[in-house]
Design a protein around this nucleic acid. Structure first.
Length: 481
DNA sequence: CGTTATAGTGCTAGCACTATAACGGTGCCCTAGT
């Protein structure tokens, strides 16, 4: 049967849809033609269907590498809802006995979810090597580039894993990656760039308006002023757990809105509870660190505010991309105070080992206890285990640091630029604005500071019957009067 | 950069004050002893 006909039939059979969304058909056909495929589709465009449907058209096991336990659990549940029973996530939520059972019955499964760390377990690999893998999938593939070189080194070893598995057909999916990152992903996975099909869609989301507010004093109060006038629900991102908690409390006390904080120290049960409440519109505002967001499928988030400067344009677009999935107008607001870059800069320094640390550790063959952060220690230990020389390790760390700083400087420039914010962000991804949306950014056609003033708005409503952009903005973003 | 913790100073000999240093974010895996 023609693949085009086959996938259409399977789309109906397995998912009950009659038509594909943008990009999906191209991706699946590419994979069925035997191409390794790198997929960049904006958030909410149905990336998971790409590998799932491909899997249904092929004989053998689909292995999905996923960064978070909660993501795996979600995907397993969703597949089960479609009636699929041959699906499991092998992770630390299973006890040893359950893991062994699943591994012993791998050939009876269609979809297996795993973390990169789990793939480092030799016993897991020994089982995977014995079965036929039809598709090796890397979900949220930007993690390879974002985390592989420091925070989660096992992401850098997926190439070796592929080699051990005899280079299975591979699909890597992400929503935000520059050309450089896409190349990094392919290289890291040991995929031949020539024989790879890339399906790339724009990172632009025309219903999200970009705005920056320069705060030279009392940022917290300015934040509260803003959110009181904005439509809910929304997310506020922070670079500090403590401040996230403090502001959540402040919002509750000063405005009476339902606000909760979310970061890595929140116990697992509460995390799930907060997510659920947020999804069911019982929480107006989440004050979160970067821990919050991946896998959050909520369509009606109206704004994403950044209290602190994000570390990279990639991170910013990922976080901002969580609002407005329903296509309704939404707001990405950055609160910027000159000097904000320092927090991120410090965090970056704290992540990567210094040259001194590397030299000492290589000389002694171990890490000096108590002298470095957990991520620094982890990374150095990984270098010591690898074949890399001190010089190579030093160079890698140096260029990594420069790269991270460049990403940060781009965000500082974004905050300070007086040209179009949307164009500025897209430029980082080597894209141009195609068709300026009605609500573009605070440098084009929305004056965020002005239009939030209630008096101004009321006056305008009386004076001007004709809708101007600011008036439209008010209707779209602000609470009804 | 702004905030907080710690160490040091000096007369109130135990507390108030000040100078200085440290810190800030993401997750997976598992082991062993209760």
């Amino acid at each position: 049967m023609d693949n085009r006909v086959l996938i259409k039939k399977n789309l109906e059979n397995y998912f009950g849809y009659t038509s594909f969304r943008d990009g999906q058909e191209e991706v699946i056909l590419s994979a069925l033609d035997g191409n390794h495929t790198l997929v960049m589709l904006p958030t909410g465009m149905g990336k998971s269907l790409c590998y799932q449907l491909t899997g249904y058209c092929l004989d053998g096991l689909v292995v999905i590498v996923s960064p978070l336990l909660s993501l795996m659990q979600d995907q397993v549940e969703q597949l089960k809802l479609t009636g699929e029973k041959r699906v499991a996530a092998i992770n630390s939520l299973m006890d040893a006995h359950e893991k062994e059972w699943v591994l012993n019955h791998l050939s009876e499964y269609k979809f297996i979810f795993l973390s990169p760390e789990m793939l480092q377990q030799e016993y897991v690999m020994s089982y995977l090597e014995k079965v036929s893998i039809s598709l090796f999938t890397i979900d949220e593939a930007h993690c390879i580039s974002q985390w592989g070189l420091d925070f989660r080194p096992d992401y850098s070893d997926l190439g070796i894993i592929r080699q051990q598995l005899k280079f299975p057909l591979t699909m890597a999916l992400t929503a935000t990656a520059t050309e450089r990152v896409r190349e990094e992903i392919l290289t890291s996975l040991q995929i031949d760039h020539e024989n790879t099909k890339q399906v790339i869609y724009s990172v632009d989301r025309s219903n999200i308006a970009f705005s920056t507010l320069i705060c030279d004093h009392d940022k917290k109060q300015q934040l509260i002023n803003q959110i009181q006038k904005l439509k809910k629900p929304g997310i506020i991102y922070f670079s500090s757990k403590k401040i996230a908690e403090e502001v959540a409390g402040l919002i509750r006390n000063k405005t009476g809105m339902a606000a909760e904080s979310y970061h890595s120290d929140i116990v697992a049960e509460d995390k799930i509870k907060i997510q659920q409440q947020f999804i069911h519109d019982e929480i107006d505002i989440i004050c979160a660190t970067s821990a919050f967001g991946m896998g959050i499928n909520k369509s009606n988030i109206r704004f994403v505010i950044h209290f602190h400067l994000p570390g990279s344009p990639e991170a910013y677009l990922q976080e901002v991309g969580r609002c407005g999935r329903d296509g309704e107008p939404s707001l990405a607001l950055l609160l910027y105070e000159p000097g904000d870059g320092m927090i991120q800069l410090r965090l970056q320094e704290y992540t990567l080992p210094t040259i001194d640390m590397l030299e000492y550790s290589y000389k002694k063959g171990k890490v000096l206890e108590g002298s470095c952060s957990p991520t620094q220690k982890q990374l150095i230990e990984n270098y010591l285990k690898s074949d890399l020389s001190v010089e190579a390790a030093k160079n890698q760390v140096k260029s990594r640091m420069i790269y991270k700083q460049q990403q940060l400087y781009y965000m500082i420039d974004y905050a300070e630029t007086s040209s179009c914010k949307r164009a500025f962000l897209l430029h980082y991804f080597n894209e141009k604005v195609s068709g300026k949306p009605p609500l573009c950014c605070s440098n084009c056609n929305i004056e965020i500071n002005e239009c939030y003033k209630e008096t101004d708005l009321k006056q305008k409503k009386i004076v001007e019957k004709e809708k101007n952009p600011e008036e439209t903005l008010k209707e779209l973003f602000l609470i009804g009067n």
